[in-house]
């Protein structure tokens, strides 16, 4: 191979082959990308929620991007319980202050990080959430404490528009 001279034909073969491969590869992308979330799905990316009807100790579930989002107005006991936990005890260490912008309001995606079931509220060994599918226990801050789920319940991007309204997404 190496002792043979590079001919005009070699050059043509390689350039033709390269261009064909690159062209075919670039044509694959539209066929792959058509499956990604489309413009109409992305357009529903944010949801505004009025918090006034929720009393301490109550939760509501709203749909955001087709996913349930738990909004819980925590009781003082729940907040102190969540703050009292040492980070060493947590499989996915995260401070409660990092999870709740306003300690009274816990906003998180209500989907178990294991395989996507919806955990049941105020159940389980840590008085937080319990996933009935494969037995994951979450605490009052939605942090994973026991069971197969790898991470804490996800916190979506949200902002307080005023004291009574939040915007998720």
């Amino acid at each position: 191979m190496s002792d043979k001279p590079v001919t005009r034909r070699n050059f043509l073969y390689i350039t033709t082959g390269t261009f064909t491969a690159a062209g075919a590869a670039s044509l694959v992308w539209p066929f792959v990308d058509q499956m990604n979330p489309d413009a109409s799905v992305k357009a529903l990316a944010s949801t505004e929620v009025d918090l006034r009807p929720i009393a301490p100790g109550q939760s509501i579930t709203v749909l955001w991007r087709g996913k349930p989002v738990f909004i819980r107005r925590r009781t003082p006991e729940e907040i102190s319980e969540a703050k009292a936990v040492s980070l060493d005890e947590l499989p996915d260490p995260q401070d409660d202050a990092a999870r709740a912008k306003n300690p009274e309001w816990l906003v998180m995606v209500g989907i178990c990080t294991h395989l996507g079931c919806i955990p049941l509220g105020q159940k389980g060994e840590y008085n937080g959430w319990f996933c009935p599918c494969h037995g994951s226990h979450y605490d009052t801050s939605g942090r994973i404490r026991k069971g197969p789920a790898p991470t804490n319940l996800e916190i979506p991007d949200y902002v307080f528009l005023n004291d009574n309204t939040i915007k998720i997404g």
């Binding site: 792959v32 499956m35 990604n36 979330p37 489309d38 799905v41 087709g66 996913k67």
Partner: peptide
């Protein structure tokens, strides 16, 4: 998300 074509099953 690619499989779902969204952010949840739908």
């Amino acid at each position: 998300n690619w499989l779902w074509g969204g952010y949840a099953v739908g």
